[in-house]
Design a binder for these strands. Structure first.
Ligand SMILES: Nc1nc2c(ncn2[C@H]2C[C@H](O)[C@@H](COP(=O)(O)OP(=O)(O)OP(=O)(O)O)O2)c(=O)[nH]1
Ligand SMILES: [Mg+2]
Ligand SMILES: [Mg+2]
Ligand SMILES: [Zn+2]
Length: 570
DNA sequence: GCCGTTTTCGGCCCGACTGTTTTCAGTCG
């Protein structure tokens, strides 16, 4: 069992324990343990296998969680989880997706009314069976009925790029609100997470009610979930939520720090403050003894008050940013403008829509200095992948137009060569040897067992003609899980053989992810951020890759395609 | 359940909003 699977078990334990009314701190211990294991850069199995090592030395993992991890690695399941799954009816978990209905109320309703499905709950509302229960009333019953569709929809988190569009649209609407003096998006959107659960907007204004009225008017079908004096939550579309917090100008920094999160980052920040005799909330930084305010108008002030430099939002996940901030080793994160080459794109020779020239012109327009044309190889027949003959013809065509682009753009002769299901490369070595740039990637046999698929990728890494492994884990966010590949082994081999690893910037891929990127950086493996464009517009996804790279703590120096092609050493 | 330059026990971030509460629990950010 790999770390992610163990972490999933602890997350599920935490969720189920909540429905049993457990001590909230015990529940958080499971959540913290899950996070610690998910973000660990070596495998739990490897630590357990080494008698010199002790898993319970990992912060957040004590005797109990270490023991449970051991059981999971050895047997693949956890008896305590199986017991909890039997004990907690599935329907209460679904019920808790209704806004305002949490674990305690869900359990009470389920027990009192013997509910077995959300349909039963809807029926109970219609038959007016809830308003008479102790602790419930007419309003609660109405709110449940209202929120049932959200629970039934069970909507997934949306891609960052889609959140970006919605944020722009809401932003344009809010701009016409004259009482707003300052406005800033916060939450996971500001942190650049690959998916966003809801949007969080921070606003400075004197007239709170007017701003809230304005937000409510964003969409004729938007609904207000909660609304008070300082915050409001609305629902736009089917179930997507937008939260807005309204504060005074001198609270802006503290409020932005609070609202940007993450939750774990906030908890850590506030604990550090407390240790220094201070208190941080969304209104400012205060002395614990006399409540006097010491900071809060800017984020910089808030962090400075606890002796830290400003921390970039992308790093605020309570991973290692506090360590780095305290020691003055926060990375200077890469920016989109730093990227001057793009080494993964397709043309209409395979499944792209544009010609080489069109891609080249679009790359110049985007300020790039070099590109590699990397169409599919023959095994990818659905995309009309190239055999050696067609590929050499394409390279000849590139040779012929190179002079046209002299001094403006270097066009590299590349290929995205399939790693065959039985292992080995789809194209002959003598052909690959003639390329400037060879991507290797998996398209078939994605569900092969761990050893087999890992061996295939290791084989590609060991091939001296392979420059880079493209979309190394194969995941499609919200759609397809990653290959069951041993990434420790892959990264170790990549380091040994000097093979680059791709960060595929397609917003559905973002592969490698932030955690892998951070691990790769620590190992000294250079990253290439590529668009995998299939059209000229496809070159525009670079910005999403940059977000993910920043979350991984990458600097300009960590990313190879920030350097001129002439300086590349291979 | 985890943790420890004051602690091996007793804390664990801090506050807004809602409903049915007569003083606060539950839920959420
Ligand atoms: N101090 C503190 N702040 C919190 C807590 N929960 C949320 N926040 C802050 C930090 C979050 O980033 C911010 C927005 O909350 P959200 O629930 O929208 O979370 P976030 O945007 O991080 O992730 P999301 O993609 O929306 O699930 O509010 C909490 O328990 N304590
Ligand atoms: Mg959010
Ligand atoms: Mg939110
Ligand atoms: Zn591709």
């Amino acid at each position: 069992m790999d770390n992610a699977a163990i972490a999933d078990v602890f997350d599920e334990m935490a969720q189920l324990l909540e429905f049993r009314g457990e001590n909230p701190f015990r529940i958080r211990a499971y959540t913290n343990g899950s996070k610690a294991i998910r973000e660990l850069d070596e495998s739990v199995a490897a630590i357990l296998a080494d008698p010199e090592r002790d898993l319970s030395k990992v912060p957040g993992i004590g005797k109990t969680l270490a023991e449970k991890s051991k059981v999971l690695v050895e047997t693949g399941s956890l008896p305590q989880l199986e017991t909890l799954r039997k004990e907690i009816p599935e329907v209460v978990i679904q019920m808790a997706r209704i806004p305002g209905l949490g674990a305690k109320k869900a359990v009470k309703l389920q027990q009192e009314l013997a509910l077995e499905s959300l349909g039963d709950l809807r029926k109970a509302c219609h038959e007016d069976k809830i308003s008479s229960l102790k602790g419930f009333g007419a309003k609660t019953q109405a709110a449940i009925l209202d929120g049932l569709s959200i629970a039934e929809a069970a909507a997934a988190r949306i891609y960052w790029c889609d959140a970006d569009e919605l944020a722009a649209s809401i932003g344009r609407h809010m701009e016409s609100c004259k009482v707003i003096s300052k406005m800033q998006w916060a939450g996971s959107y500001r942190r650049g997470r690959e998916t966003v659960g809801d949007l969080d907007l921070l606003v400075v204004a004197d007239d709170h009610a007017a701003v809230m009225d304005h937000l409510e008017a964003y969409h004729s079908h938007s609904q207000t979930i909660v609304r008070g004096d300082t915050k409001i939550s609305i629902r736009v579309g089917k179930s997507f939520q937008v939260d807005m917090r309204v504060v005074e100008a001198d609270q802006f920094g503290a409020a932005l720090q609070y609202f940007t999160g993450s939750q774990a980052h906030n908890i850590h920040t506030r604990r550090l403050a407390k240790e220094q005799g201070l208190k941080i909330n969304e209104y400012g930084v205060f002395q614990l003894d006399d409540e006097s305010r010491v900071a809060g108008s800017t984020e910089q002030d808030v962090y400075a008050a606890i002796g830290l430099p400003w921390i970039a939002p992308e790093l605020r996940e309570d991973r290692r940013e506090f360590e780095a901030a305290a020691s003055g080793t926060l990375p200077e994160l890469i920016e989109t403008e730093d990227v001057i080459g793009d080494l993964h794109m397709h043309t209409n020779a395979t499944d792209g829509t544009a010609t080489i020239r069109e891609m080249a012109d679009a790359a110049i327009a985007r300020g790039l200095q070099y590109i590699a044309i990397t169409d599919h190889s023959k095994r990818v027949s659905m995309a009309m992948g190239l055999d050696e003959k067609r590929l050499r013809e394409q390279w000849k065509a590139i040779d012929e137009i190179r002079s046209e682009y002299d001094g403006r753009l270097t066009i590299l002769k590349g290929i995205e060569c399939d790693i065959l299901e039985r292992g080995g490369m789809d194209l002959a070595d003598d052909c690959l040897a003639e390329a400037d740039w060879v991507l290797a990637s998996i398209h078939y046999g994605q569900k092969q067992p761990r050893d087999q698929i890992t061996e295939r990728i290791l084989g590609a890494i060991e091939n001296p003609h392979v420059s880079c492994i493209a979309h190394p884990t194969g995941r499609l966010i919200n759609r397809r899980p990653p290959y069951d590949v041993d990434m420790d082994a892959v990264m170790t081999a990549a380091k040994k053989h000097g093979t680059f690893m791709e960060l595929n910037a397609n917003p559905a891929r973002l592969d490698l992810n932030d955690l892998h990127l951070a691990a790769a950086k620590r190992m000294g493996i250079p990253i290439v951020i590529s668009t995998d464009a299939h059209s000229i517009d496809g070159l525009g996804v670079m910005q999403y890759g940059i977000k993910q790279a920043r979350r991984g703590g990458l600097t300009k120096a960590d990313v190879a395609n920030t350097r001129p092609w002439s300086e590349w050493t291979k």
